[in-house]
């Protein structure tokens, strides 16, 4: 199994370099043109740097997405778009901080859907982040979860897992994550006995399933793909609503008859009450950023599926998902806040 991007790293690199150089040139050119097209508040926007706050540490997939978008936005807006990492409480710290800032378009936050849709099921109410405090500007991409089995477990597909005797230990990427919810719901619906073993993030959970410390685990595809390709873990299921383009041979939970569509979505948002023209200008710049070759190849390299929907659609979709997950946990008596 060779992925297309493996075959031509050199070519891609040249392309990347060239785009970067082109970006730098355009950036310089744009710099001179700021404010040239006058009239209206939105036309003046932006007159200074637009900051994107990320609620995760530098180097993680959320951070990399923010940096990829920021690069393209800076090019289009003609101002600097710095990315600031403000890790804490799954991203709640960053989100609350940005939600409390003036709604002038200069302060944005990169949101993880799980913070809105799943985390509230695991933490106390006053800690949960409310989407009503934010103006969602644009949906970006979708990162799918895959259920993996260790090679030593001998599981090749979901039926093997269902037929296994005894209590299955399943690794999750933490409490209140999609990884935990997806597996808990699947195990409940398929009537498999299981105990969740929470790890701090995706990488230790993956290491545990590669080393057969747990029999199965669910992590995001981008992290798991190299181990899947090398045959160190066996993919059993994807939790996406539709088949993942990077895993065409792996069935989804929905296809197998289990109602657990869980993916990680990401979107850009601003404090509530953003002026319409400023919002329009931001949407325009994000559209320009995500249309660039650099960004599309970034998505491919990181196995991210584009899910570029409008801010209103994001709000509707996430609210629906939050309700759906809440109903699921109630129906099957799943408690995410239990070890």
């Amino acid at each position: 199994m060779t992925t297309p991007d493996r075959r031509s790293p050199r070519l891609r690199r040249v392309a990347l370099g060239a785009t970067a150089a082109a970006a730098a040139l355009t950036l310089a050119a744009c710099g001179g043109n700021v404010g040239a097209a006058g009239g209206g508040e939105g036309e003046d926007f932006p007159s200074g740097p637009v900051t994107i706050t990320v609620g995760q540490d530098a180097g993680g997939s959320t951070d990399l997405i923010a940096r990829a978008v920021a690069e393209g936005m800076a090019e289009d807006l003609g101002v600097a778009v710095p990315v600031v990492n403000r890790a804490g409480a799954n991203g709640a710290v960053a989100t609350e901080e940005v939600a409390g800032k003036p709604a002038d378009g200069y302060e944005l936050v990169l949101l993880n859907a799980s913070l809105i849709t799943i985390t509230p099921l695991a933490v106390s109410e006053d800690e949960a982040v409310d989407l009503a405090d934010l103006d969602v500007i644009k949906g970006l991409s979708q990162d799918d979860y895959v259920l993996l089995a260790s090679v030593d477990s001998g599981f090749e597909n979901l039926d093997d897992l269902k037929g296994a005797s005894g209590d299955i230990k399943y690794g999750t990427t933490g409490v209140g994550t999609g990884s935990q919810l997806a597996q808990a719901a699947l195990f409940a619906q398929a009537e498999i006995d299981g105990t969740p073993v929470p790890f701090d993030s995706g990488s230790p959970a993956l290491t545990a399933v590669v080393g057969d410390q747990v029999q199965v685990a669910t992590v995001q595809l981008g992290e798991a793909k190299p181990q899947i390709d090398a045959g160190k873990v066996v993919p059993l299921l994807a939790f996406s609503a539709e088949r993942n383009q990077f895993l065409p041979d792996v069935p989804t939970a929905v296809e197998e008859g289990y109602d657990v569509p869980v993916s990680q979505y990401r979107a850009l948002a601003a404090p509530k009450g953003l002026p319409e023209d400023v919002k329009a200008r931001l949407v325009e710049s994000i559209d320009a950023a995500i249309a660039s070759d650099t960004y599309t190849s970034f998505n491919e390299n990181n196995l991210l599926t584009p899910h570029e929907i409008s801010g209103e659609e994001v709000t509707t979709e996430w609210t629906e998902l939050a309700d759906k997950y809440k109903a699921l946990t109630e129906e099957y008596d799943i408690s995410l806040a239990e070890g």
Partner: peptide, 9 residues
């Protein structure tokens, strides 16, 4: 970013 996936291979 460089198009190389670190992994067992």
């Amino acid at each position: 970013i460089q198009g190389i996936t670190p992994g067992p291979q």
